[in-house]
Computed example of a mutant assay.
Amino acid sequence: MGTVDDFLAGLPDAERSAYEQVVAAALAEAPDAGQGTGYGMPALTFAGRPLLGFRVAKAHLSLVPFSAEAVAGAADLLAGFDLTKGTVHFTAATPPPDDAVRAIVRRRRAEIDR
Rank of each mutant, 00 (worst) to 15 (best):
A28C: 13
A9Q: 06
P97L: 05
K85F: 11
V88H: 04
S67W: 07
S17A: 13
E111H: 10
P31W: 10
A59C: 07
A57C: 15
A70P: 00
A28N: 15
R49C: 12
A70D: 01
V71D: 00
P50R: 06
R109M: 12
R109E: 06
P95F: 10
G73T: 02
L8Y: 09
L44N: 00
R109Y: 08
D98V: 14
L61Y: 11
L63R: 05
L77G: 05
F66C: 02
G48K: 02
G34L: 03
F54K: 07
D6G: 14
K85G: 07
L63H: 07
A18C: 11
P31A: 12
P96Q: 01
L78Y: 08
T84D: 07
T3K: 12
P96K: 00
L77K: 12
A75V: 05
G2C: 08
A18G: 05
L78N: 04
F7E: 03
E20A: 15
S17N: 13
E69R: 11
F90P: 06
E20W: 15
G40Q: 05
L63W: 03
K85W: 13
V88K: 00
K58V: 09
A9R: 11
R16D: 05
T87I: 13
H89V: 08
V4S: 05
A33W: 09
L27S: 10
F66Q: 06
H89A: 01
F66T: 03
P31M: 14
E69G: 11
V22G: 04
G86Q: 02
A9V: 01
H60Q: 06
V23P: 07
A68W: 14
A57E: 14
A57G: 11
D5R: 13
P42Q: 09
D82Y: 13
L8F: 11
G10I: 06
A9D: 10
A26C: 09
A75L: 10
L51K: 00
P42A: 07
V105L: 09
A110W: 10
A110Q: 08
V105C: 07
V88R: 01
A9T: 06
K85T: 13
Y19R: 01
A100N: 02
V4N: 00
D5F: 10
L61A: 03
S17H: 15
R109A: 01
A93P: 10
S67T: 03
M1R: 15
E69T: 15
A100C: 09
G40D: 00
A28G: 14
A25D: 08
L63M: 10
A75T: 06
L83Y: 02
G40L: 08
V64K: 14
T37M: 09
L51A: 03
L78M: 04
V22P: 05
V4A: 05
F66Y: 12
D5H: 11
A33N: 01
Q21Y: 14
D98T: 13
A47Q: 13
K58M: 06
S62R: 09
A110K: 10
L27T: 12
S62H: 08
G48A: 05
A47D: 15
R109S: 02
G48I: 09
K58A: 08
V23G: 05
R102N: 04
L8I: 04
A33M: 04
L27E: 09
K58W: 04
I104C: 03
A68C: 14
A28T: 14
Y39G: 11
A79S: 14
L11D: 03
T37E: 11
I104N: 03
A74G: 00
A26G: 09
